[in-house]
Amino acid sequence: MAEHYTLRVNGASHDVRDAWLGESLLYVLRERLGLYGTKGACEQGECGSCTVFLDGAAVCSCLVLAASAEGCDVTTIEHIGSDDEPSDVQRAFVEQGGVQCGFCTPGLVMAVHALLDANPSPTRPEIREAISGNLCRCTGYGRIFEAVDAAIRERGA
């Protein structure tokens, strides 16, 4: 009920003060905590750009009321890797040409990590289904499939 609440994001606690309680987790991550890696493109769970892990599950952060995530573990793209130390999935996206404008990319990286962490050897339809909630307007998905395949190969090697 308080006007302030605490979020646990990427292992660290953040106090959110004087916030309008109607703010989505996406908004708070970006505009209050400065974690701009998570993107918003539809505000209604249709594009997947805002995908984060909430207690380990990949969800759309635009559909999470931030104040309701108190006590949950939130993981964002910033925790997955960095420009200098990308994760295997991130490296594969760059090397296979899975990035064009890059706006959908952080959400896709999160979705692919969620997939491969749960299922190291998904079938082709399983891959497509796992990222079907992440819209990409530039690539037509072809190079993204290649990136997922490359990450699977690397993990299997």
Partner: peptide, 25 residues
């Protein structure tokens, strides 16, 4: 508010401005 997949859309679009929320998460 449970998963938020419907109500949060309404709130994000300014079509729902509840005075009180009980989160069931």
């Amino acid at each position: 508010l449970q998963g938020g997949t419907d109500s949060m859309v309404q709130m994000n679009f300014g079509r729902l401005d509840p005075r009180a929320v009980v989160s069931l998460r």
